[in-house]
């Protein structure tokens, strides 16, 4: 009954979007629209904004997201393993010891290389 399960998920996505958009339609019908150009300026603590916000950003955000993606991939290997290892007993434990051990090694390496430092 797998496909029925996911039919519900699909309907949740579509109908959820529609229901979230419904109040926006109400706003469109009810709310006032006053043409005042001042209103559409970008907020910058009350002063006239200078330049664009879209600028170059710190490389650290990128580094953290790169490390995150790698660990996230490791996590998806752990999920299927976590529900079956019980049947394999000690053997499964040692397999996991190696896998998680290498993960921890990578974390320690990143730590020592300063990849986890913000400043």
């Amino acid at each position: 009954m797998l496909l029925v399960d996911w039919l519900y998920v699909g309907v949740f996505l579509v109908v959820g979007l529609a229901m979230a958009a419904l109040p926006l339609a109400v706003v469109w019908a009810l709310a006032p629209r006053l043409a005042q150009p001042q209103k559409r300026t970008t907020y910058e603590s009350g002063v006239v904004p200078f330049g664009q916000a879209w600028a170059q950003f710190n490389v650290r955000y990128y580094l953290f997201s790169l490390v995150f993606v790698i660990f996230d991939v490791e996590v998806i290997y752990l999920y299927p393993w976590s529900i079956v290892f019980r049947q394999y007993g000690r053997y499964a434990f040692f397999v996991m010891l190696i896998f998680v051990g290498i993960l921890l090694l990578g974390l320690i390496h990143a730590w020592r290389k300063g990849a986890l430092e913000w400043t």
Partner: peptide, 12 residues
């Protein structure tokens, strides 16, 4: 909130 105007900043 339903009666509030929806404002899009010009730069957005």
């Amino acid at each position: 909130l339903l009666q509030k105007e929806h404002i899009e900043p010009r730069a957005a």
